[in-house]
Amino acid sequence: MSKEEKKVNRRDFLFTASYTVGAVGVGAVIWPMIDQMNPDKAQQALATTEVDISSIEPGKSITVLWRGKPIFIKKRTSEEIAEARAVKLDDLPDPQKDEDRVKDGKDEWLVMLGVCTHLGCVPLKDKGDFNGWFCPCHGSHYDVSGRIRKGPAPTNMEIPKFEFVDSNTIKIG
């Protein structure tokens, strides 16, 4: 009996070892098949864009394309900044201070991903109940800081990584 058991155990070991090596092998083949669908080098190469912002008037905004997505660059008036900062954090579904959405000392410049955080449509400017943006797809309202106020979108519009190269140029990405 014990002799037989020992034999079975040896075979079990071989089975387990074979399955393990087989699984690793299958995984090693499957991963490239999956990863090939991720953004390729050419897509990643588009990671930064420089934008000249010298011609934007206060209260106006421009839209530029970065990584295939629109970026809203808005030069806000002092009234608009004041309005954004007067909002109580309790009134926000995704509480975030306006100060945290802009660069220190460059409070007039709002640079954000012009993509509704619901299902990815591009919100329309100067529309909606909060003086900011309104997404026509499923009715999300954003305020003048790009924060979600009403509708199905779960979070504020995203702020991309960006920096001021000089006072007239920003680099996104």
Binding site: I34, M37, N38, P39, D40, Q43, L46, R67, G68, K69, G120
Partner: peptide, 9 residues
Amino acid sequence: TWLWGAYSV
């Protein structure tokens, strides 16, 4: 992103 193969459609 994986479905897109890019950062947008």
